[in-house]
Design a protein around this nucleic acid. Structure first.
Lengths: 362, 362
DNA sequence: CTGAAAGCGCTTACAG
DNA sequence: CTGAAAGCGCTTACAG
């Protein structure tokens, strides 16, 4: 049933197209297009007429049509997971901010089960929507990155990967987790702790393995042992931090300090210690990882390793955009390689055996 | 410079179009389209030929072109802010999940300064990309919702708003914050506390005002006073929670319990109390709001008001999608109105004067 | 069951 | 400075 010259359906105003504007301003479509795209070669009066028509009709260019003909959507596909955690959501914020700054929109896909991602489905969905590039902000877990090795992959747009083991021909941006592990452990050693336990994230996570390597590095460099008995494998949750402390206190009773691979697990440790009537940092030094906003208000305030998570996301956007530009301008293909971000230590009371060293706690 | 029958540029494979598939399968474009769209009226052998061509060429339909002709993008514009907080990021997760389930993609826009949003810019960006509907998941702060009253607004697509004061002709989904305030305060009263202080969020936030009203409701219903001197206006941060406790302890020394309008501020309170050598819940009962995952591991574990944040997001998607369908099918315009989600109390030790009542703590 | 043709709303050489 | 026309990759009555 047609709209017989009557009123528009309620609430739905038909959108003005370039043709409507052209008719109203008595110019060609192309001239309207010129005005919209700030092409200088339009006579002042013509330009004015067009601008008025645009305003009157509330004309809004259809970005879909433009993308279709320009083969460029100015949209980035972002695949992420674990937004309930501080790190991933902060990374996403960094991504969005930088993308907006560079004139790109974000098409967001979240993965519920990052360990067994249906990669093809997600990739196809993004590519069919003609994203110009993809940021894969899903942690490397088990073999969930194996698709990158597929011979048939050959993605038609640049992909930047966050937080994974460096590999040839891939563009990766990552926090240097191993250096972070060294920071945490080295600090505890410097405070005089010697029997340092470790609560890891799930060890099928690359980041957890890296942080453990950093812990080992520091202990070995100090001539100390780094044995299985000192390690508990958690799952990033506070509950597992609590369980980890209990087990380590049993299996490794001489423990005088503990490095938990994220702040949530460190929080679980703090609570378990308090409950036992022992004291942090006197009886046990504790260091976390992430520097979530709450950490400064734990009891005692938590020493932790801070990742510049916004910068991580921003860097990923810069990388993918420069790869896009390079591809479009027929320049040499974007350089692969890894871009490391260095974490830093934030010292608070949970690790300060001698309180002298306290800088600004945050 | 043309590609003179040589190799494709490195890394960039030209994308197959429907025409390529049609040629290879020796059928018309329309038949390819029929196969892609699961139109049953295609002969089995033809279908097979087409499917093979699709596979060989790795044909992937261009969603932009499809959207252009169908006037339907199957994309939702989502405007959010404050992803560093648990609530907003959880809401976004809920939105994404439900959208995916209903076959919609997410175009994400984040606002840095939600109090002074450049609404037109964001709206135009979304609309020019032809989103089918918009979810406005930005808290109502000050007058940052005034644009909804603009006579010229008349948005061409349905908008659903999260967490704002109900208003005619608007579709709103919100947690019942006032009921949440009553839950928290009523619980403290039931535990025998009588002098209940309040630390609010910024009072230009609608949610903060609502939670305060709930606190007042409960106190008045119990015949108690709810005065200015019992109230401290925080900014959602733990630091302000700390400051709030200090001030209230001074101005309102008879205080025996405290309701903090989010868990971060409650955490600040817990720390300040501990530092003073006073005890929770014996000297001071404390209740928070949100139930962030860490709350169960605070010291003592925090009683709080839980919002089903995923459901909030999911509900918003359902609302906007049903409004979209209604508009498209020329059905009556989508019903305005508000959809309330009821929060619930999670009881932990921070408010348990008589520990008998402890259910499962979390 | 199948296809030729028009059209979605833009952009872009090309010609004037 | 300006416009007629072709084309981006799809879909969809319509006719056969």
């Amino acid at each position: 049933m047609r709209n017989m010259g009557g009123k528009d359906p309620p609430g739905q105003r038909k959108r003005a197209t370039i043709a409507h504007v052209a008719r109203q301003a008595r110019v060609s479509n192309q001239t309207v297009s010129r005005v919209v795209n700030n092409n200088p070669s339009v006579a002042p009066q013509t330009r004015l007429r067009v601008q008025r028509a645009i305003a009157r009709l509330e004309y809004r260019p259809n970005a879909l049509a433009r993308s279709l003909v320009r083969h460029r959507s100015h949209t980035l596909g972002v695949v992420a997971s674990g937004l309930e955690y501080y790190g991933p959501s902060g990374t996403l914020v960094g991504i969005e901010r930088q993308a907006t700054a560079l004139g790109y929109s974000i098409q967001l896909n979240l993965l519920n089960r990052p360990q067994l991602a249906d990669v093809d489905h997600v990739l196809n969905s993004l590519l069919s929507r003609q994203v110009d590039g993809i940021i894969w902000a899903v942690p490397e877990i088990g073999s969930n990155r194996s698709w990158l090795g597929r011979k048939t992959l050959n993605p038609p747009v640049p992909i930047v990967l966050l937080s994974m083991h460096p590999a040839d021909h891939l563009q990766v941006v990552s926090v240097d987790n191993r250096a972070g592990g060294r920071l945490a452990t080295g600090h505890l050693l410097a405070q005089g702790y010697r029997r340092i336990g470790l609560i890891t994230g799930p060890l099928d996570w690359w980041e957890a393995r890296e942080r453990r390597l950093g812990w080992e590095d520091s202990l070995r460099a100090a001539g100390l042992e780094a044995n299985e008995v000192q390690v508990f494998e958690g799952d990033w949750s506070s509950l597992s931090g609590e369980a980890g402390f209990s087990q380590l206190a049993r299996m490794f009773p001489e423990m005088d300090a503990l490095f938990a691979q994220n702040d949530q697990m460190a929080l679980g440790v703090l609570q378990a210690v308090l409950r036992q009537g022992r004291r942090v940092p006197d009886d046990l030094g504790v260091v976390g990882f992430d520097d979530i906003p709450e950490s400064a208000f734990f009891w005692p305030p938590l020493t932790t390793v801070r990742q510049e998570i916004h910068e991580l996301g921003g860097m990923a956007v810069k990388q993918v955009v420069s790869a896009i530009e390079a591809t479009r301008s027929e320049a040499k293909p974007a350089m692969a390689g890894i871009h490391w971000l260095t974490p830093r230590l934030v010292v608070r009371q949970s690790s300060l055996r001698n309180p002298v060293a306290l800088a600004t706690g945050g």
